[in-house]
């Protein structure tokens, strides 16, 4: 049976994810306020493995 799909209310349009990072010892609530150098540094970071001693 074909049912007419009801228009449902949608929320969250345009809402960004918050990404909290530590850059010089301080946390920053969103990377939007990082300066260009810090953005580049954050992007380049690699994870450190804890395998082995």
């Amino acid at each position: 049976m074909q049912k007419v799909k009801q228009q449902t209310e949608r929320v969250g349009e345009g809402v960004k994810f918050e990404r909290i990072r530590r850059i010089t010892g301080y946390l920053v609530g969103t990377t939007d306020r990082f300066n260009n150098a810090k953005k580049a540094e954050e992007k380049d970071r690699v994870k450190h493995s804890v395998a082995g001693a």
Binding site: D44, H48, V50, G52
Partner: peptide
Amino acid sequence: DRAYYTNSFHVPVYYQIGAYKK
């Protein structure tokens, strides 16, 4: 060749290294 110089005496953030060795 990057947009930043490495923080103080840190091993560069882009360098692959184990946590304990770092």
